[in-house]
Amino acid sequence: MLEWLFITISAILTLFLISYKTYICKLERTPAISVFVSAITGTMLLYVLSAAVLTVTITGIFNKLIILSLGLSPFIIGKMATYEKENLYCYIQILIIVFGIIYLLL
């Protein structure tokens, strides 16, 4: 059950990030865009929280390590990211989230 919740949140977060990078970021800045980014942030918070809970509940030390890494990835990437290479780091973040989905599905 918790795994499916984590997968759903990951999928929503992926969609949000892709739609931001492909469409929203090209629009003129308006307060609505700030609200959209806030929604992504809220989803990312749920992603981190659900990863934390899943780390505790999932069985197997290897699984725990993988899920913990997934949950910490937004902060690690955030720390490494620079404005000049923001695109690259965003795609890495998306790939990590997608990897998490595939890992749990398999």
């Binding site: 800045r29 308006t30 980014v37 809220g42 990312m44 918070l45 923001e86």
Partner: peptide, 19 residues
């Protein structure tokens, strides 16, 4: 959510509008 957004890649996307 500010500390979370600020610590992740989202800090490059969010601009709090002067209002």
């Amino acid at each position: 959510l500010i500390p979370l957004a600020a610590s992740t890649i989202l800090r490059f996307y969010y601009n709090y509008p002067e209002c």
